[in-house]
């Protein structure tokens, strides 16, 4: 059994590593035979780091995210969260772990349909251990930041896609998780709403939130500190994006206006 830090995975002290997977594998048993969705992925994430996982559909990126968040049991491999080995946890232990440490944002929003937006967010805070007053205060704070104060008492069915995703983001951050896992957060949004959600993610990151983003949207991925490329269940590239911006980029770098 390897301990974090023994395998040369990351530069920097081991104590900064928040999430780490070693040889993570997920195999689905289907009628057509076993499907290897994730094959031996070694991934790590430091505190406050923003990592994007890109890849075509079918590359296993969503499965990887689900396994890392305990939404689905991995077939084999290790998962370490904050120095604690968590693969093989039962559903109940995963649930307790998620309460404190992990927030999720999904492509299809997945808000609880029979609760108002405010209740959706406060529920996450409450189960994270906050008192009723603290949960309410946190919700009001988040809604203020995300410009959702007017929608607090609406149910998801009454909200637009962009509003729902912002509520989902508030819900994910309500209990101040150490790690935010997001799966195609802009997949179901138009460009305006996408931009606004991405802006919010960026702001969270700037405030110190560790984020693991799974996406095929280059604009979303370009906000990350590091981009991991996944292909056919395996990592093919893992490179940091330069923090210093290249010499002034204009549209000319992509297209040329002629006339």
């Amino acid at each position: 059994m390897t301990r974090v830090g023994e395998v040369p995975c990351c530069d920097g002290p081991a104590s900064h590593v928040l999430l780490r997977s070693v040889g993570l594998t997920k195999v689905f048993r289907t009628d057509g035979g076993p499907v290897h969705a994730v094959r031996g992925v070694d991934l790590w994430l430091r505190r406050g780091e923003f990592v994007a996982v890109m890849g075509p559909s079918g590359s296993g990126k969503s499965t990887l995210l689900h396994a890392l968040g305990g939404l689905e049991p991995a077939t084999s491999g290790e998962i370490w969260l904050d120095g604690q080995r968590v693969d093989g946890f039962s559903q109940a232990r995963w649930a307790v772990l998620r309460r404190r440490h992990i927030g999720f944002v999904f492509q299809f929003f997945n808000l609880v349909s029979n609760m108002t937006a405010a209740d959706n967010v406060e529920l996450a805070a409450l189960i994270g251990g906050a008192s009723r007053r603290a949960a309410r205060a946190r919700r009001e704070e988040l809604f203020g930041e995300l410009e959702l104060t007017a929608q607090a008492d609406a149910v998801p069915a009454q909200l637009s896609g962009g509003e729902q995703q912002r509520v989902a983001l508030a819900r994910a951050l309500a209990h101040r998780p150490s790690l935010l896992l997001t799966d195609e957060p802009t997949g179901n949004l138009d460009s305006t709403n996408s931009a606004s959600v991405l802006r919010l993610l960026s702001r969270s990151h700037a405030a110190g939130q560790a984020i693991l983003l799974v996406t095929h949207d280059a604009r979303a991925a370009s906000m990350a500190d590091r981009v991991v490329s996944l292909f056919d269940g395996m990592i093919v590239d893992d490179a940091p994006l330069p923090s210093v911006p290249p010499p002034r980029v204009t549209a000319r770098d992509v297209l040329e206006l002629r006339g």
Partner: peptide
């Protein structure tokens, strides 16, 4: 009728027993 919502609650951190 609520199966979907219940599973989502587990994502938030409700244990099956809860």
């Amino acid at each position: 009728v609520q199966k979907q919502d219940l599973a989502m609650l587990k994502t938030l951190g409700f244990t099956p027993a809860q």
